[in-house]
Structures are given as structure tokens and as C-alpha cells.
Design a protein around this nucleic acid. Structure first.
Lengths: 153, 153
DNA sequence: CTAAAACCTCAACTAATATTGAGGTCAAGC
DNA sequence: GCTTGACCTCAATATTAGTTGAGGTTTTAG
């Protein structure tokens, strides 16, 4: 029973899946991708530290913001290695992702506000349509590089 | 020259690509997916109505909102067939997509506003974290169906 | 002790959104 | 009239995020 108490601190892949709400195959997948890690029993079965649940929770939340797994993994890699991340560590992560989110929200909002006008009227047809050629996009490509020429005759 | 004038009303795939800012392969792809269509010359080359440029513009804009090609195609299919869509037709489209956009923006905003709190503190660890268990998600799954049990011991 | 449930690996498959390449044809300019 | 660039089809490849299945092992419950 003392032994069982110790073992209880680790979770099997099935428990992780059940408690995090992701499929066992997804847990395996995240491990293959290096997002999470595990130790093995003598019988080669995975055992996860219970902190894994928080990590998976964060993976799912980050995915909702549109962040790809590779970036999530990169962010995790910057976390202190071999020591449990502190609240401060997580806060740093979330602050960076919040910036991404803000950008994305801003982009979608701009899109929404111009959607009716630009699709409904002739706006899309001129080369400086704000939807197809937002100022920041132009900055990257050089002026006029990818303008849509809808009506030039 | 009169003939050339008539031909000018149609665009080759290369012209479409150049003027819409998408690759030739993407134009082919959209056609295979039924999003756009073309007629053929005697020599089997595609010729596009110039309205195609607007359609591709709309495809790219809709993609920015996160709408998959299949849905864009479905929306296009509801447009009057064999007649050029009116401003009203496009407006209807954009109004529906604006609703989608609004939902998406709302979701991301909620995410942003709770990100710091939920990742930084212990919030993710309790089963009713608003990020992992927004009320609307619970409604679908039945109460408590997929709650994250981070700290139950 | 044994049967069932859970686990293991590895490979193949899915879906969306294209791009790349092979092998061949068409069209335009010198 | 020939070369070159643009075009054609079809198949394979790429990426992201996983799932599914085959074939075999470990753990757990009775």
C-alpha cells in the first residue's frame, strides 16, 4: 500500500487520456513530437508525471488560439528543463501567446468590418482593396508586388 | 484585332495566376475542387471568364476567416448558376461568413481574456476552468462528460 | 492461474491544401 | 518551321494533426 501510494503519483497513458480528454493515440503522438515525455515501467509501459495534465491542457488551449504544435513544443523547450515550471514560467508563455492572439483577433476584426463592403460592392476589384492588400502585407512584398488586378483592361 | 478584342475577355491560367496572386497549381486545384470553372480552347487550354478573379479574391478572403474550401465551394454552389452573381448575392455570402467570423472572434477574445489567469495560476487544474470547459461545450457533451481532472488524488 | 483489459511498436491511412515532377502538347516569335 | 515558353494530365510528395489496425506483451481481477 505504501508502494501503491508512490505509484499513484504516476499516470498510465490511459489515465492521462481519460483525464485530459484526448485520445491515447494523441498522447503517444505528442510524445513522439517531443511535447511531453514519460518514463517507462519494467514492462515498458509509459508512466507520466501528473504535471503532464497541465501540459496537455495548455497544448489544447494553445491549439485553440491557432498555434501549431511545433511552436507549442518550441515554447515548452524554453521552459526550465528538468524542473517543474513555476507560475511565472507559465505566465511568460501565456503572455507571448496572448500577443499572437491579439494579432489574430485584430486581423479577423478588420476582415469582418470590411467583408460586407468588399465582397458586396466593387471594392475587391480595385488594386488597393484593404482586404486583399492590407498595409502590412504590402510592406513585406514591396509596393504593388502582389496587387490584384481585377479590372484592368 | 476584333478577334483579339474578344479573346481578351478570357484569361489563360497563367494570367489568372499572375493577377490573382495564387500559383497556377492552385488555380488547377480550385478547379478540380469545383470552386471555379473554365472553358477550353481547341488546343485544350483553359480559358477563364474574368469574373474568376473576383471569385479567387473571395476564396482567399474567406480562407483568412478560417473557412475551409469545401464550405466556400458549398456557398458558391448556392449562388445563381449560369448567371453572374449580383452584389446582393455576394452580400448574402459575406453576411453569413461575417457571422462565422464573429463567433471566431468572440471565441478568441474569451480565450485571450482568460489565458493569463488560467495558465499562470492553478485555474487549469480545476475541473470547471472556463478555458477548458466553456459553458457551450458542456451543453453538447452532457454535464461533466469531459472535465479535466488535474488534481483529484 | 487464467482471461480480459490495457499496453507496446510500427506502419499505413485520413483529411485539407496544395506543390512538384514526368512526360507530352500548343502557341508565338524569329 | 523551329525553338521556347506556357500549357496539359496524372501521380507522387509535403505538412499538420492525428487515427486505425496488426501482431504481440503486460497488468489486473477473479
Amino acid at each position: 500500500m505504501a508502494e501503491k501510494g508512490v505509484l499513484q503519483r504516476y499516470l498510465s497513458v490511459g489515465e492521462v487520456a481519460r483525464r485530459s480528454g484526448v485520445a491515447v493515440s494523441a498522447v503517444h503522438f505528442y510524445e513522439r513530437k517531443g511535447l511531453i515525455s514519460s518514463i517507462r515501467t519494467d514492462g515498458n509501459q509509459r508512466r507520466f508525471h501528473r504535471g503532464i495534465l497541465r501540459k496537455i491542457a495548455i497544448i489544447k488551449v494553445a491549439q485553440q488560439t491557432g498555434i501549431p504544435l511545433s511552436e507549442i513544443g518550441a515554447a515548452f523547450d524554453k521552459l526550465p528543463h528538468n524542473t517543474v515550471p513555476t507560475a511565472k514560467d507559465w505566465a511568460k508563455l501565456s503572455s507571448q501567446w496572448r500577443d499572437d492572439l491579439n494579432d489574430r483577433i485584430e486581423q479577423l476584426t478588420r476582415l469582418r468590418d470590411q467583408l460586407g463592403q468588399c465582397i458586396g460592392c466593387g471594392c475587391l476589384s480595385i488594386s488597393d482593396c484593404p482586404l486583399r492588400n492590407p498595409a502590412d502585407a504590402l510592406a513585406d512584398d514591396g509596393p504593388g508586388a502582389r496587387l490584384l488586378e481585377l479590372e484592368e483592361e
